[in-house]
Design a protein around this nucleic acid. Structure first.
Lengths: 101, 101
DNA sequence: TCGACATGTAACTAATAGGTTACATATAAA
DNA sequence: TTTATATGTAACCTATTAGTTACATGTCGA
């Protein structure tokens, strides 16, 4: 839904709904959630409600969770990398024989 | 929940649950959702399951929705993500039943 | 003014989420 | 070996969501 709204800024509710197999009302319910999260903002243009993608909340979440990004991120990637390597090690061990731990 | 896990990398499930008014099982249900989204990754340490915050999905969403994806970064993150997912998948499989592949 | 178009609201049903308690299993400590 | 600790699973109940159809309201075009 966000893909479509981003690709076609100003698209109407009905036009957006036509891209899905569910009813227009179902799409409107999803829209309400996305508007509540400020990911989509709208403005009335006659009888059409025009929809626009809003990246601000994603930017805010990114800023919040990646503050001190370089240092933290490097550490996190390293940790995940080690977890993955440990998994591969264990995988080799299990294939060799029945698990013994 | 993410705040706590980020502040205390390696925290156990029970310790995390003690910060909330709901039961440990309720917290575990939320954890399952966060792990499914790869926002939290875990590793077993004896009888304790240690939890770690993973900013990668947020970075990926940010990259997707706010800038063009850099080929290098996408490849790097995706590779590590798949490794972590594979580890989690195996972890689930081991705990779910005695799968012997 | 009337018909067409676009959207909004209400009421309903089915499915899912959220939380609980009880019990089981694995691991560490005594 | 036994007890304690940490976690996982199952079954249950309640609240909320997801989707539907029908109808209402607002705006534009003829």
């Amino acid at each position: 839904m966000l893909d479509i709204v981003k690709e076609e800024p100003g698209i109407g509710v009905g036009a957006l709904a036509s891209s899905f197999d569910v009813s227009r009302i179902a799409v409107m319910k999803h829209l309400t959630v996305l508007e509540g999260a400020n990911l989509i903002v709208s403005e009335k243009d006659g009888r059409t409600r025009r929809l626009y993608f809003n990246a601000a909340p994603i930017q805010m979440i990114h800023d919040r969770w990646t503050t001190d990004y370089s240092a933290y991120w490097a550490g996190q990637l390293t940790r995940i990398k080690y977890l993955a390597e440990a998994r591969e090690e264990q995988n080799k061990t299990k294939k060799g024989k029945s698990k013994n731990d």
